[in-house]
Each structure stands twice: as C-alpha cells, then as structure tokens.
Amino acid sequence: MPTLTDYLVLSALLFSIGATGVFVRRNLITILLSIEIMLNAVNLTFVAFGRALGEVDGQIIVFFVITVAAAEAAVGLAIVIALFRHRESLNPDSFTMLKW
C-alpha cells in the first residue's frame, strides 16, 4: 500500500514542476496552466492528509480550492485576452509599462 509519504513526495514533485513552469516559460497561458498544476499538487496533499486523519475536512478544502481556481482562471484568462488585444503578444516581458 502506498503511504502518506508517497503521496507527499508525488505532490512535492508536481508542485516543483508547476513552479518550474512559472519560472521558466514565457507564455502567459502556459504560466496559468503551471499555476493549475501547483494548485492540484496542493489538493492532492489535502486529500491525502484527510485520508490519513480520517476526516472529510481535507476534501472540503479541495472543494474551495477548485472554486478559487475556477475564479482565478476566469479572471486570469480575461486579463490575458485584454493584454493580447493591446500588444498582440503573450510574452509577459512585453508588458513592462504601467500605462500605454
């Protein structure tokens, strides 16, 4: 049987992959996707701990995280569309001015 540690290691790996995506990629959409990977890594931790403690609270937090992720994706993508209209680019480096 996989233990709690196995799930935590997996979650740490996924979180690092997501963080790497945010650090390395220069495409707004890929960066948003990397953030989703990180959120999911955290969700896995919550569910695994909830299972280890025998409580449902972990799953409820996941429910909230998913709600927040949905809101984040909606607003984030709206910002991406607005930015793309101004600059015809998805590279965050091209949005260095506060006003244009």
Binding site: I17, G21, R25, T30
Partner: peptide, 8 residues
C-alpha cells in the same frame, strides 16, 4: 508527473 512535465 510525465504529463505535467510535458505541459511545461
């Protein structure tokens, strides 16, 4: 893990 790596 593999699919997440491929995503980035």
């Amino acid at each position: 893990v593999v699919t997440s790596l491929l995503v980035i």
